[in-house]
Design a protein around this nucleic acid. Structure first.
Lengths: 337, 337
DNA sequence: TTGTAGGCGTTATCAA
DNA sequence: TTGATAACGCCTACAA
């Protein structure tokens, strides 16, 4: 039986009102009384009931994040870094982070968002892995529910987000490969409904165009942002009659899968085949050879997003609503560096 | 302004009681009424207020997990897999997962646990990275607060947990290395206060003993379960006059750091130096060469733990309170496989 | 089969 | 400076 404010009041022979105010630091409480209250409350191990406080104050001091997972399992290090970022910042502002998982686009996903929004489960929501036409943005925006996102959409809706310029990043990467002498540069893409795919793909295309290389559609294969997806796609690419000399993965996981397929064929990466990714996950530093990639500061972006979200929650507005970062091209040995 | 049960009742010209009961599936509601209620409630987008329900029912339907992080940053894939496991299982049981981060052993950590327990923030807590003398176990156990843990302690307290037999695993690994002809086998340990360290270290020692090899204390260096820790320790080990021919990391991250140090010295892993880890994280399959490791099914353990925890929460008891799993030795090329 | 009323623990309003 | 009281939204014993 946890101790309630009533217990504390009874013990002190004070009203709950006074105890409550003393604990919340109101200044219309005698200094001596406040002192007594604080001492006894802490002695008794009193902590206010979150539920009661939430009900009364009509806020939860919690932020929600729903990980877009593919069953039955899932482990993109991208997410552990993102969670570390949003979790750290939330914790330092005394907000709880409520996490759930749901497969993107399905009914279950919608159900979780609705439960949280309608049930006032959290004060705000963080979105990631944005889709081109993202129902979550429409829904949250229509519901006037505070949210921020990692990435854009193509909807005509203005919302606070932090984006990473995948297009210019990819263009830079392609230029780098062309400069290294590559002409047959393949791309293992992400699912087409993701914004990051649209951006990265268009950077890939315009990068080739800038180098005067026509796009060969047979060098574009769809992956799914996982190692297996990359592995599978690379097998296909490497059995082409005119196989590529360089393969870009839509993310690092994909690129790591590509490397694996190349190893299996006895190719030496960095010499026989160039490989590059996107994300800058830590394990990309430790592949063999280390992976060239476009680094995005996921941890810091997470913190930044929470900062923005809490501002929206508390102030109702936000000055700088859109932030666009440039990914940093990290040239490593996988592209013959 | 979110819609409450009162709004629904008003619209239906019914009492809130009837609406509540209809929605909760009581059978003393006319079928026709129930139907109307359900339809209208869903039309109006009604979802019960979590806070109100929690207050009334005195439970939160939420489970807490505090990640033991080392600032300023942190990204062991172990945790993303663990979170995926506990998150999936919690979600499928309609429990929320509340996550916070705190540096182990410090005041901030204690503060979070107390806030959650005293403030009835969650119905139960999942512990990981257990310490030999773990104040969390003492605290939760004294508070009679439901919890489960991934790993044991050395306290004389009985609590539900899933453990992985690090000792027998390590013994098996050392035997494997000895069989491969190694005599100078080093160990990069974890912090001494962790149970996993005690277990794995004792497996290391007894494995050597079983092979008739005396322990050389200069071959034991303390790491911190990170890549950098492993890297640093390996630099030290590899500059010894009589340097080791095999290095075991207390976990995979450590082993990956070791591999990096070895690469930097131009050593060929699997030939000049054997390296092995513990955990079976996915990226250990993709190092070069792939890393020999002791695999533990982290995702499934996470699910299992939540299953146990919810049983404790709902039934108050649990039949099978302690589960011990054997890690699986995955022999890969890093030990010359 | 439906409705009335009380209370979960807190905070805010108002009065003393 | 302190206290009585109402209300946040929901559930449930009890009454009708």
């Amino acid at each position: 039986m946890p101790v309630t404010i009533k217990d504390v009041a009874k013990r002190l022979k004070l009203s709950v009102t006074t105890v409550s105010r003393a604990l919340d630091g109101y200044d219309d409480v005698a200094a001596k009384t406040r002192e007594r209250v604080i001492r006894v409350a802490s002695e008794m191990g009193y902590a206010p009931s979150r539920a009661a406080r939430q009900l009364r104050r009509q806020k939860t001091e919690a932020i929600g994040y729903i990980m877009p997972t593919i069953k039955p399992r899932f482990a993109d290090p991208f997410f552990s870094e993102f969670i570390a970022g949003i979790g750290d910042e939330a914790a330092s502002r005394n907000f709880d982070l409520v996490v759930s998982l749901a497969p993107p686009g399905e009914e279950a996903e919608r159900a979780v968002y609705q439960r949280w929004v309608q049930g006032r489960r959290v004060d705000g929501i963080v979105l990631s892995r944005m889709r081109v036409n993202d129902w979550r943005v429409r829904y949250l925006s229509d519901s006037k529910f505070p949210f921020v996102a990692f990435g854009r959409t193509q909807l005509p809706i203005d919302f606070p987000h932090v984006g990473v310029d995948g297009e210019s990043g990819m263009r830079e990467l392609v230029a780098h490969l062309i400069e290294r002498g590559h002409r047959r540069i393949a791309f293992v893409s992400a699912p087409a409904d993701l914004t990051l795919q649209v951006d990265r793909m268009s950077g890939y295309r315009s990068g080739l165009a800038a180098g005067g290389i026509p796009v060969d559609e047979s060098l574009i294969v769809e992956g799914n942002l996982t190692r297996d997806g990359g592995h599978h796609a690379a097998q296909q690419l490497l059995s082409l009659a005119k196989s590529p000399t360089a393969i870009i993965g839509a993310n690092d996981l994909t690129a790591i899968g590509v490397m694996r397929a190349a190893h299996e064929r006895g190719l030496i990466i960095g010499r026989d085949l160039a490989v590059a990714g996107f994300d800058g996950i830590e394990s990309a530093e430790h592949t063999h050879p280390p992976l060239t990639t476009l680094n995005q500061p996921v941890y810091d972006i997470g913190r930044q997003l929470i900062h923005m979200l809490i501002t929206v929650i508390e102030e109702g507005t936000l000055a700088e609503r859109q932030i666009m970062l440039k990914p940093e091209l990290l040239i490593r040995a996988s592209t013959g560096g």
